[in-house]
Every structure is written in C-alpha cells, then in structure tokens.
C-alpha cells in the first residue's frame, strides 16, 4: 500500500493513469470493434450483393425496354417505347411487377394484369401436404419476395421516389368505409364504376376491375400513389393516407359484401338487368304461354 501511495506521487503517475485508461479503453474497444467492423463489412457486402441481384434482375427483365440505366427508350421516330424509371420509386416497381403488368409481354394500348413471371411471383401457393413440395414452394416464394425487394431497392437507388406503404397504412379494417365510399364515388367511380367492376376508357384503354380478391390493398394504395398507366396520381395532398385507407376499406368491404338481393348480375347496373329481364323474364313467360296454349281441354277438344 505504501509503495502504491509512493508511486502515486511520482511525477509520471498522472501520465501513467491516462495511458492505462486509454489502453483499457483501447482493449475494450478492441474487444468489440473488430466484431462490428466485420458485421458492417458483412452488411455492406450483403447490400451490395442485393443491389447487384436487383441490377441483374433489372438487366434481365426490364432493361430491354427501359434502357440499361433505366433512362427510357425511344423508337426511330423519337416516340417513347418505355418511360424512364428514374425517380419512380419502390411503390411503382412493386405495383407494376407484383400485378404482373411488368415485365410486359406485348405492348398495346395498356398493359394487362397477368400472373407475375416466376422470378417475382409472390402469390404462389405453399399449402402442399407433402413436406418437400411445401418446402420447395416456400423457398421459391421467399426467393420471389427477395427478388422483388432487390429490384425495388435497385430502382430506388437510381433516383429515389415513393416507398411501398407499410402494412398498417393499407389495412382495410383500419379505414372508414363510409368516407371511403364518398371519396370513391367522387374520385374513382367515373372510371372504375360504382363498385370497382372496371370500365372502358378512350383509345382502347380501360380501368381494370378492383372487385377481385387478387387486387391487394397494397396494390390499390400503390396505384393511387403512383398513378400507373392511364390512372392519375392521387398524391398525399390530394388524398391523405387516411383517405387512401378509407378508399381501400370501401373497395375491400364492398367486394366482400354479399348481395342481399340475390345474384348481383355482375354489379354493372341496368345493362345486365335489362338482359336478364328479356332473356329470363320474357323467355320463361313465352315458354309458359306456349305450354298453356298447347294444352287442349278434354271436354272441348274439337280437332
């Protein structure tokens, strides 16, 4: 103890303590630092790999029309073939690819919704009874989800843009369907029809139906956010996220709601009603008339 006290008073003692402390910190830091460095390095490698994967997918599936740098392409006359994807954002990529519209098959007035290509098909079924089959399907689905995420990431890295909405923002249960109905009738029904059964637009374009369950709430949100094809953009100042959720609530609840009056006849209004009236109504009554007039009373049978 005495020696320690004596050393404490030496002139170099202060430097020694500081040095020791620095060394200790250094040791402790060294204990953690190489690890996080490795982690960071690993993350960076992974991200780079993901981005690379995204880029590869882009080059394979998108670049032939949108250009190797997503700058868009034009034909010989200068008419655009495909638009630039700089700044379209993850939401747009997610919408176009998850609905199968992109990669496009054959360009027409409008890209139709179709089954996504296998590399991006996140809606495949995985509920197989056989474990191997199920495992393979689950693996494929996980890969498709990763591919889609990587592609989104890559396109975002080119110029930013709106992100994919979080699950909470698109949950139909969280929206006010009555408000959504009002907003739908004011903003959407003129093209998509009153319950979203779709409608024709000019020049061979059309508003696709929203009344099938494969149109997911996320896709509806993304469509409003990014305005794909003939659709206008409803950004967050036109329709707030709450409004968008209300519209999703209206669309989803309406399509899930049973028809209290019987068969909905396609829910397309008086055209199908008139058709049924003539074919079924008049048809049945004509048959009845033929049957009644073909009957001859026994007593009065004359011929």
């Amino acid at each position: 103890m005495k020696r320690f006290t004596a050393w404490r008073r030496r002139p170099w003692a202060g430097y020694a303590v500081v040095l020791a402390a620095l060394a200790a910190i250094g040791v402790i830091y060294a204990g953690f630092s190489p690890q996080s460095d490795r982690a960071e390095a690993a993350n960076a490698t992974q991200a780079a790999a993901d981005l690379k994967n995204g880029q590869q997918l882009f080059n394979q599936n998108c670049a032939s029309c949108h250009g190797l740098n997503a700058e868009g392409t034009k034909d010989a006359k200068g008419n655009p073939i495909a638009p630039s994807l700089l700044g379209v954002g993850a939401a747009s990529v997610d919408f176009q690819v998850s609905t199968g519209r992109m990669p496009a098959m054959n360009p027409g007035a409008q890209m139709p919704r179709k089954e996504p290509i296998p590399a991006f098909d996140t809606s495949i079924r995985t509920d197989y009874a056989e474990p191997e089959k199920r495992e393979a399907a689950e693996k494929q689905k996980a890969q498709a989800e990763k591919n889609l995420a990587d592609l989104r990431e890559y396109v975002t890295s080119l110029g930013g843009g709106p992100a994919v909405p979080p699950a909470g923002a698109v949950d139909p249960k969280g929206g006010d369907a009555a408000l959504g109905g009002k907003l739908f009738r004011t903003n959407c029904a003129q093209c998509h029809s009153f319950v979203g059964s779709g409608g024709a637009l000019t020049g061979g374009k059309y508003a696709p139906p929203l009344d099938k369950s494969d149109v997911t709430p996320t896709q509806i949100y993304e469509a409003m956010l990014t305005g794909p094809q003939a659709m206008p953009v409803f950004n967050d100042t036109t329709l707030t996220p709450k409004d968008k959720q209300a519209i999703i609530a209206y669309v989803v609840q309406t399509r899930e709601e049973p028809n209290p009056g019987g068969n909905g006849l396609g829910r397309i209004g008086p055209v199908s009603e008139g058709l049924v009236g003539w074919l079924v109504g008049i048809g049945l009554l004509v048959l009845a008339a033929m049957w009644i007039t073909a009957k001859k009373p026994k007593k009065l049978k004359k011929s």
């Binding site: 029904a189 009153f194 059964s197 008086p270 009603e273 008139g274």
Partner: peptide
Amino acid sequence: AISSASQPDW
C-alpha cells in the same frame, strides 16, 4: 360524382 356504366333502364 359520377360512375362509369351509368345506364338507364332498358
């Protein structure tokens, strides 16, 4: 407001 497929009765 207006809806597409706005038709009258036949």
